[in-house]
């Protein structure tokens, strides 16, 4: 087993968790942690950039909408790499996203140069291989995102959303 394979084996058995204050700007820490982890797991730079933006947007939603910026709350970001799948779960204390705008609605607003509500969820859906919104738990809400190591680079901008809320 070479050094890289040994590293991947180690990563397979250890998840990483980051706890963020509910304050704008701290999403940068989750971005950089996920980027570092994904780099160690062997992801190409373009996929790492996709992941960073998706993680940032999920954290922003958790800070602003889930926890409403309340100083007593935290955003928990859990990262795991197993079977060539890098997953990031972002948990807040909220009740989930009541209405996720459809892609067409977001794009129509942009085409009309109107403020695009739901741009964050739109970007997440486009940038990761799988996403699950609205996984409700007893004490909050989780967004789960996955990028696959074997997946081809994003060309068409089309990704699949699945799970709690079907889009």
């Amino acid at each position: 087993m070479n050094a890289k394979e040994q590293m991947v084996k180690k990563l397979n058995s250890h998840a990483v968790e980051v706890s963020l204050p509910s304050k704008l700007g701290y999403e940068r820490i989750a971005m950089d942690c996920s980027a570092c982890f994904a780099k160690m797991a062997g992801f190409a730079q373009d996929r790492i950039e996709d992941l960073k933006t998706a993680v940032a947007e999920a954290c922003l939603n958790a800070i602003e909408h889930g926890n409403k910026g309340h100083p007593d709350t935290r955003v928990l970001v859990t990262m795991d790499f197993k079977d060539d799948r890098f997953s990031v779960c972002v948990k807040d204390n909220g009740k989930g996203i009541s209405r996720i705008p459809r892609d067409k609605t977001v794009m129509r607003r942009i085409e009309n140069l109107e403020p695009p509500k739901g741009l964050g969820t739109y970007l997440i859906k486009k940038l990761v291989d799988e996403v699950e919104f609205n996984n409700l738990t007893a004490d909050g809400h989780i967004v789960k995102m996955v990028i696959k190591l074997t997946d081809k680079p994003l060309l068409s901008g089309k990704r699949q959303a699945s799970g709690g809320t079907t889009i």
């Binding site: 999403e27 933006t53 940032a56 947007e57 922003l60 942009i110 140069l113 109107e114 403020p115 695009p116 741009l119 964050g120 970007l123």
Partner: peptide, 9 residues
Amino acid sequence: NSGGIALLI
């Protein structure tokens, strides 16, 4: 981020 993109729009 998306907030910045919305501003640019």
